[in-house]
Every structure is written in structure tokens, then in C-alpha cells.
């Protein structure tokens, strides 16, 4: 650990933020086009976030602020762990469980902050978000276990580099198609894209956890969302689509994957939270198990 590591880490966070926020802006345009609109400027998302930062804000007590800082801090730290095209600020810290659990710090912080506002809708939103997490994470974890068993490593960068060099068929998505499909479905859940976005239902529970945020805390939450998206998409990208040999390839793949989820979610309705759970435990979990059994007991995928 030298100072350079930390500078790289900071740059990684910054880069991830700029890249993902631009992509979000572009995707807002994509969505608009889907709906036959013109849509906002490609940098609209930056404007929105900076505007939120520029406004005055309120606080409901120290935990409201502390939670927000903890959330964004945790997520920022997670971004530092993510290997991008083989690059890492801190080599050796990219164990998949570390990443997915450090991610949880951010989520817990956000949940804490939201519930700390004293607004019951925030708590309802958090309760749905956590339920949603329980729904999508289990199938995804089953696939992850399968991957670790198969490749005997839990390091994300190693898992990504194993897939590289043999073209598109080297990707886990094609080697383990069922697992790939499961993880892409799980990605929808992770990103809170439709049909799994009931926890921020704006009209029903007034945007759930976000209900009390305004001003800088809202800006932080938006930033958090961008970074979280980056982490989650990167994770799936690294695990199933071979990561990226170079930064450019990585970014292109990333953009395609993210835009894909966005387009699909653009034409989706919304699951109730219990429907989401039932869905995830019926279809993706089943597929994940089939994949796991095929790999572990029948040796498929070697």
C-alpha cells in the first residue's frame, strides 16, 4: 500500500462516476427514444446531480448524515476493489465475496440513513429493497459458487482473465449459459431496473428510501446510485463477459450490457415485491441449481 494506490483508487472512483453518469445520461436518451421522445441532453445526469449538491439541505439527526456518508463511502471503497480491464488500485482485494459484502456496507448505510429520517415510507422502501436483495442475490450466489468451484478461485480479475484470449466463446456466458442468463436477470434486480423496482415506487411509497432526501444528501444518493450501477454491471461483466482486455473494450462491453438492461427494463411492468421473490426463487434459482448440478456433478463447463 503506497500513496499511489490511493491516488489510483481516487481516480478509479472519479472515472467510474464520470463514465457511468455519462452513460446514464445517454441511456435516458435511449429510453426517451424508445418512448418516441427526444430526451434530455447526454449530460443531464451530471446537471441533476450537481444541482442537488447546489441546493440547501436538511438533516434529521446525525445518523441521517452518517448513514449517507457511510453508504457513499462504502460504495466508493467497493469501486476501488473492482478490477477494470485487469487494472486494480489495490491488487489482491478483488475477492468476489469481499466485493459483494463491501457493497452491503453501502446498502446498510443507505438503509440506516433512510430509516433514520423517521419517515415510514423510507422504512417501507428499505424493507422492500432488502427483500429484493434476498430475492436476486441467492440465484446469483449459486452461480458464483459454481464459478468458484469450477475455476478454483474467488478473485474477480482472475475469473475475468480466464475467459479472455479464446474469443467470444470463452465467455462464461456461453460456457455456462444458464448461469449467465441467471446473472443477467439478477443484474436487473441489483440495478433496481424494472420489473424489480418496487422499492423505489415513486407514486406508491414516494420513492421509498429516497423520500426524505433533498439537497446534498440527494446528490450523494444519486452519486451512490451511479457508483453502485458501475459496481454491479462491472461484476457481471467480469464474471460472465470476460471483462475487458483493454479499457476501451471494457467500456464498450460495459456500455452495451448496461444499455441492454436499460432497453429491456424500458418495456417492462413492475413486480410486486413478493412476486419478485417468487419469481426469483422459481425461475432463476431453478436455472442456477441446474447449472450448478451440471457443473459439479456432471463436469459440464470444463
Amino acid at each position: 500500500m503506497t500513496l499511489m494506490n490511493f491516488i489510483y483508487g481516487f481516480l478509479a472512483v472519479l472515472g467510474a462516476f464520470v463514465f457511468q453518469t455519462s452513460l446514464t445520461g445517454i441511456n435516458r436518451k435511449v429510453t426517451a427514444r424508445l418512448q418516441k421522445r427526444r430526451g434530455p441532453k447526454w449530460y443531464q445526469q451530471f446537471i441533476d446531480i450537481f444541482k442537488a449538491f447546489s441546493k440547501s439541505s436538511i438533516t434529521h439527526g446525525w445518523v441521517y448524515d452518517f448513514g449517507a456518508i457511510m453508504a457513499l463511502g462504502g460504495i466508493a471503497a467497493t469501486v476501488i476493489f473492482i478490477p477494470v480491464a485487469g487494472m486494480q488500485a489495490f491488487p489482491g482485494l478483488d475477492n468476489i465475496f469481499v466485493i459483494s459484502y463491501v457493497l452491503a456496507v453501502g446498502m446498510l448505510g443507505m438503509a440506516m440513513s433512510a430509516a433514520g429520517s423517521g419517515n415510514p415510507w423510507a422504512s417501507i422502501g428499505v424493507s422492500r429493497a432488502l427483500t429484493n436483495m434476498l430475492a436476486y442475490d441467492i440465484p446469483f450466489m449459486v452461480v458464483v459458487f459454481t464459478l468458484i468451484y469450477q475455476h478454483n478461485t474467488g478473485s474477480v480479475s482472475e475469473l475475468a482473465s480466464i475467459q479472455q484470449g479464446v474469443g467470444i466463446l470463452g465467455w462464461n456466458f456461453f460456457k455456462l449459459p444458464l448461469g449467465g442468463i441467471v446473472s443477467v436477470i439478477a443484474l436487473f434486480g441489483m440495478l433496481g431496473k424494472k420489473p424489480f423496482d418496487s422499492f423505489i415506487a415513486p407514486a406508491e411509497i414516494a420513492s421509498g428510501p429516497m423520500v426524505e432526501y433533498g439537497g446534498k444528501q440527494l446528490g450523494m444518493m444519486f452519486t451512490l446510485h451511479e457508483l453502485m450501477t458501475f459496481i454491479e454491471v462491472s461484476l457481471i461483466l467480469n464474471l460472465f463477459f470476460g471483462g475487458g482486455e483493454t479499457l476501451l473494450i471494457y467500456m464498450v462491453k460495459y456500455a452495451i450490457l448496461y444499455t441492454f438492461t436499460n432497453i429491456v427494463s424500458g418495456v417492462m411492468p413492475r413486480f410486486k415485491i413478493d412476486q419478485a421473490v417468487t419469481f426469483f426463487y422459481k425461475v432463476p434459482l431453478g436455472l442456477a441449481f441446474i447449472q450448478g448440478l451440471l457443473v459439479i456433478y456432471l463436469g459440464w463447463g470444463y
Partner: peptide, 10 residues
Amino acid sequence: EQLGMGPMAT
């Protein structure tokens, strides 16, 4: 939305 406008929940 092209003007950056949009409805908000709260």
C-alpha cells in the same frame, strides 16, 4: 424532459 424537467415524488 428535453428541458431537464421531470416530476418528483416528494
